[in-house]
């Protein structure tokens, strides 16, 4: 199996994306911004589809839209209560624009196809390199913001009172997350990115409340889940009914949810957090 260069490249790309998503994901889950994390992939793709209509590079459109989308989400949703709706509104606008771009290109110009499932076994090395560069930049940016970000995540009021620019931090975080996630989605598809962003991080947080440990766990969980999914996808080719490789997104989706449920089960005793039980 490892003699297959496609599989090796898939493992490489998968682990890189898992590490990036694990790192960013811990903050996403702590700040309860999973919806934004998922929605920004859609927003990014809309930009990627729109850019060629204006004769621009799809990657430029992807980055531009994820930056604009993150800023609008942050501006509209600075209170936690408003975040869900703010993300929903940005997603609505982006899906609407997506319909417009699709309409224009159905009649007039060509576009890159959006990826829901992605094709991790057929990655072009150029794209992998871009993702590594952009991902590294995002990790460095997050490392610089690390202390104030944690402070304003855990206790926004106190942080604001102590002079931490909470609003700026929150916008900056969404921006970094948006770029990281949109870029990852371009490489491995929306589904794998969302699963890797939320699954490992939310399981890790139930194991350790200390952020550095949670990040470490999230990166490990993500890398393990991704590797396992790729192995299973490879092995499943010989499973009944035979000759049909089961998709990576199926294995990862199930593993991500499963790991979280198990982690939740084991930590059930000590996590009686009194958070509101809505919807």
């Amino acid at each position: 199996m490892l003699a297959d260069p496609g599989v090796v490249q898939a493992l490489l790309a998968g682990v890189i994306v898992a590490a990036l998503c694990g790192f960013v994901g811990v903050f996403v889950v702590m700040r309860r911004q999973s919806f934004a994390g998922h929605a920004i992939t859609d927003v990014g793709f809309t930009g990627g589809a729109g850019a060629p209509l204006a004769g621009l590079d799809p990657l430029a459109g992807l980055l531009a839209f994820s930056v604009i989308g993150s800023i609008v989400m942050a501006r509209l949703g600075d209170k936690i209560r408003e975040r869900d709706v703010a993300t929903g509104v940005v997603l609505t606008a982006s899906l609407g624009l997506g319909a417009l771009f699709l309409f224009i290109q159905t009649r007039y110009v060509s576009q890159p196809a959006a990826l829901l499932f992605g094709s991790i076994f057929a990655i072009r090395s150029g794209v992998l390199l871009t993702t590594m560069v952009v991902g590294a930049a995002c990790v460095i940016a997050l490392a610089i913001l690390y202390r104030p970000l944690i402070f304003s995540t855990v206790n926004p009021e106190t942080a604001a009172a102590r002079g931490v620019p909470v609003k700026f931090i929150s916008t900056a975080f969404l921006l970094i997350m948006g770029v990281a996630v949109a870029e990852a989605a371009q490489l491995v598809g929306v589904l794998l990115t969302t699963a890797l962003l939320i699954g490992p991080a939310s399981a890790a947080i139930t194991f350790s409340r200390r952020v550095p440990w949670a990040i470490l766990f999230a990166v490990i969980f993500g890398a393990v889940q991704m590797t396992l999914s790729i192995f299973l996808a490879y092995a499943s080719y010989t499973w009944p009914p035979g000759g049909k490789g089961w998709p990576v997104s199926f294995f990862l989706g199930v593993l991500a949810l499963g790991t979280f449920v198990i982690a939740r089960f084991f930590s059930a005793g000590d996590s009686r957090r009194s958070e509101s039980n809505e919807a």
Binding site: S119, F121, A122
Partner: peptide, 11 residues
């Protein structure tokens, strides 16, 4: 369909 092709088939 824009789905994941199996690695064996890609290969």
């Amino acid at each position: 369909e824009g789905n994941d092709p199996a690695p064996q088939e890609v290969s």
